[in-house]
Design a binder for these strands. Sequence first.
DNA 1: TTATTTTAGTAAAACGTTTAACCTGGGGCC
DNA 2: GGCCCCAGGTTAAACGTTTTACTAAAATAA
Lengths: 338, 338
Amino acid sequence: MKSTIKDVAQEAGVSVATVSLVVHDNDRISSDTKKKVHRAIKLLNYHPSRSARGLVSKKTGNIGFILTDDHFLRTEPFYTRIFLGTEFQARTNEYYILLTTIASDYKKEDPLPRFILEQNVDGIIIAGKVPCDLVENLKEYNLPLVFVDFLPFKGQYPTIQIDNLKGGYIATEHLINYGHRNIGFIAGDIKHPSIYERFQGYKNALEEIGIRTNDKFYVIDEDYPARANGYEAASKLYKRNRNITAIFAANDALAIGAMQFYKDNDIKIPDDISIIGFDDVEVDLLIDPSLSTIHVPKIELGAEAMQLMLNILKNNSTTAKKILVPVELIVRKSTKKI
Amino acid sequence: MKSTIKDVAQEAGVSVATVSLVVHDNDRISSDTKKKVHRAIKLLNYHPSRSARGLVSKKTGNIGFILTDDHFLRTEPFYTRIFLGTEFQARTNEYYILLTTIASDYKKEDPLPRFILEQNVDGIIIAGKVPCDLVENLKEYNLPLVFVDFLPFKGQYPTIQIDNLKGGYIATEHLINYGHRNIGFIAGDIKHPSIYERFQGYKNALEEIGIRTNDKFYVIDEDYPARANGYEAASKLYKRNRNITAIFAANDALAIGAMQFYKDNDIKIPDDISIIGFDDVEVDLLIDPSLSTIHVPKIELGAEAMQLMLNILKNNSTTAKKILVPVELIVRKSTKKI
DNA sequence: TTATTTTAGTAAAACGTTTAACCTGGGGCC
DNA sequence: GGCCCCAGGTTAAACGTTTTACTAAAATAA
């Protein structure tokens, strides 16, 4: 059944060392011998044992994937799709992904994920915002780290990020092009770097045409970027400012919540108010009217992260590369010219 | 940094064998010695190496999770949620999940997932319908298998399943209770066992009140359970039969597609036609009107599967247990009394 | 007291690889 | 012919555990 390197060696009439060298395509072995060995490998359906390999080479062939539990449980498949991309890219490169979550209030004294303690990963991909303490604790294991959709404030790390600034800009620009001038902005945690960048993009676009905004135009103190908060934010904004004709929501969930508020208050979308989101999660097409948004290529984001990890692993380089993946304006039915 | 069993042995002044026995809480070791060793373990932050362990014990601490690639890429987070449940349950029991997909047209001669060939898993959880050939090929590795939301036609296997029959029944019953008598049914692949059971539940409920259905009442030859097919199915059904006042769709995606068809043809939901889905995927609340459906506890489904796997692994039992998880009627706005 | 059993622990082999160091038998060069 | 080199391997140690068989000391029985 399960054949070992010894069986192969015997079958091919060579030493186990030779088999190992053949498996790693070492050029010290003649092509004749290689052929012989390969035949034996095929015949016996030999596959090297991960454990044995890992034990001696210190390489596990696993990559850890960490995100906080609230990101993990989010109903919109955002980080899940990133994970999918990572997993796919890993698989085609003969790696496995070990996924785990950590508490979103992870503290210095909390234990690290088990796969780190057990030396069971060759590198770690971190998706979304995670507590600094985690990154701190990770340091002493000096495993290669790659961040996706987040970059810790201190320290230099390779990262794959959404072009949030551009996204915020083109979302706002789209509204401007549609004739809107009183454009509101709603967000959850503005301290989240990605969200802050989207906000900057929004401000940049407006300033470019000479509009200065103030807090009558935005609600950025919602504590969570979910639908209920979008509803609440829209409500607050409505009380503060009745002149707004368009809303840029920092993500789709907020946008959808806001839409619900307008529906409940008989404000027509997009006739009375235009609304644009950010992320392009799977559901945007389903809601009525369908939501204009900024498309984020989530699977690619994950795949890129894994690719970056592979490069680091291969070259042993630790360049703190920052890769920005482009976003795209998707115009649907929730925005309208005035 | 990374301390080994030797370091611990030295620190505690015992042999490595003793440390190993302490780690496994063997009662041949006195509690005094255990204390000493535990102190050393804490002090050195010792965690046994997975690889070394796996090499000798033949246990990897990994569980494989297999699904077909089209299930994996489905936009509704159905199997993803099942995976989440599995992963969570695995983690709290010190296991890792290795996820992989296979082609939905997997053939006998195709290679098995790498983690099987490399002996890198202790058991396998299979989610959703997979080709028989895969199951056949898996046999010779005789790893424990657990199926979720599917059971191969031949062979006896432990499985966690949705109570589809009951679900189909209560969905239909709900429509009957609302006064409907001409109730349609639409489905994708009726050969999928789960779908077939839902269909049976539908028929049972109707027969119980003396209604015999015929193919003027259902479209069950759509090849895929996606929204576009729901649209198409509703269209076909509309052409065949104008008396229908309610539809039971075999899953939510089909239901949503059907709703789109009715909207496009100015048929009001739920005034002109009631519609109920199955699965309760995350988006059901967002669509307008919100979709009545049968709730399937997806995370629990995955967690149960892992739990079953853990029991099998612990007891070395291979009882082909079948666990049915209950479903629940969720009444929202898409169904109405007539 | 001596023989036997029990307790508490240890020594060492084994698991399946990788890899550094070591061989060996020609061929080329002077 | 003697020497060195090189191509093409092989030997054996090492990786960090688990586990079987063994042992020394203590407890018990005769």
